[in-house]
Write a protein that binds this DNA or RNA. Structure first.
Lengths: 237, 237
DNA sequence: TATCCTGGTCAACGGCCGTTGGCATTCGTC
DNA sequence: GACGAATGCCAACGGCCGTTGACCAGGATA
């Protein structure tokens, strides 16, 4: 496991005045307790509502220890949001079943008990905390998109991967964070079956024209953010 | 527009000692300025980071005025998150084009300039603030699900509506809040085209077995949150 | 036994927050 | 012009926050 520090991690193991302790000895237990408590708090309450004091109390330790081990609240978050999606190897999967495999993997990732707080941490913090959003983007860019676009193939691979990600993140948001019905209470296997088709379509089905170069001008064809035809709704008065 | 107060809204227009001012006269401009500033702040920074003082400063007014008009920060939020999706009438739409119409409406709703902060407010606050989550559930339940399930038809109408909602919310989250690439930069019309097919499938396509009664037991068939077959991945160590 | 480093506690600082109450000013109405 | 309500500013309170620095126990080391 990699502990990501804020910025100035100690590089010289020699000399005394280094402010942060070296790997030391058996402080590992405290470090881990703090990390577990932090993940639980960040997952349950987001970045802002989580207090260093509460994390420390949960870990049965003083708040100043958290600062010594992780430098700052930001450093603690960086360590707590260090996530590996552990995506399965998709190369050997029959192309026609990719959607189902991905959907099942994803649902089981979230459904898997309390241990996987890390994913909720990301979703809860990313919407309000820039560090969380950046971490989310990084994981998306370095883990999700490459793995999925590799099997989606073609010049649209990344676009397809993005759509798959949006679909799955949307379900995670509705089901595990917002608890919107009826998605929140649907039984997992039905959910997988429902999602599999859409994911499969995004991966291997026909896609709209446009291609990668369509990314150059976000609002191309839409003047002032209004669609060229049809409904032009407004919210509020 | 309805101003939702926290709890004890004044009911008797007579007598003086009522703590909150009656509609009064032309304080309407200040009220509106506060509300606009609040929406912008809530949308940009979420509930917790938004301070009453900052909202007041943006509105060119003292913080205590915010309290007098809206009772509390919570009351201010309730007023700022009072949202009408203004869903179009779907009854007259050709069934085969429902997906496209819904996708286009939704994208244009978000794409429409600064005025529609209200939607970002909801998405930014709902993940960390219980009041925001509750408001989101309410809007979903009373506006989105009824309108969509009416045209989806059948006993699975609400389930279909939920899936559509998850799909569209996922895109909104990735594109407008998290700014995940490549979804964030895709041109709107391509995005609509990409989404239309999936939304259409959720509305009128084949769905997995299970039916409404599948909602009774969330983890039916999955022991301990693990899928009965295939990949059993874990995140972190 | 004397000396350090390590893991840990305790008390405090400065700052920002939501919220309150008192005081000034403006404005509509008699 | 007088008066009272509506509108607004100012100063403060109590509380919680992230963060810091001084101090202490204990075990390894010399």
């Amino acid at each position: 496991m990699v502990i990501a520090m804020a910025s100035s991690a100690p590089t010289a193991p020699t000399s005394a005045p280094g402010p942060w302790p070296r790997p030391g000895a058996r402080s590992e237990r405290s470090r881990q307790a703090i990390l577990d408590a932090a993940r639980a708090r960040f997952a349950a309450e987001g970045y802002e509502r989580t207090t260093v004091r509460a994390v420390a109390a949960d870990a049965g330790i003083d708040a100043s220890m958290v600062m010594r081990y992780y430098g700052s609240k930001e450093g603690l978050f960086a360590a707590a949001a260090d996530i590996d999606l552990r995506l399965p190897d998709l190369d050997g999967v029959e192309p026609g079943r990719l959607g189902e495999v991905l959907a099942r993997h994803f649902v089981s990732l979230w459904e898997g008990g309390r241990a996987d707080d890390a994913l909720v941490v990301l979703l809860r913090t990313a919407t309000t905390h820039e560090g969380g959003a950046e971490r989310m983007r990084e994981i998306f860019r370095t883990q999700a998109v490459p793995a999925v676009s590799a099997v989606a193939g073609g010049p649209d691979g990344e676009r397809r991967a993005g759509l798959v990600g949006a679909q799955l993140l949307g379900v995670a948001l509705c089901r595990y964070v917002l608890r919107l019905e009826p998605i929140a209470s649907e039984d997992p296997e039905s959910l997988v079956a429902d999602l599999a088709g859409s994911v499969q379509r995004y991966l291997t089905g026909p896609l709209a024209a446009g291609g990668p170069d369509a990314l150059a001008h976000p609002t191309r064809g839409w003047s002032k953010g209004q669609p060229p035809t049809g409904h032009v709704p407004r919210s509020r008065t």
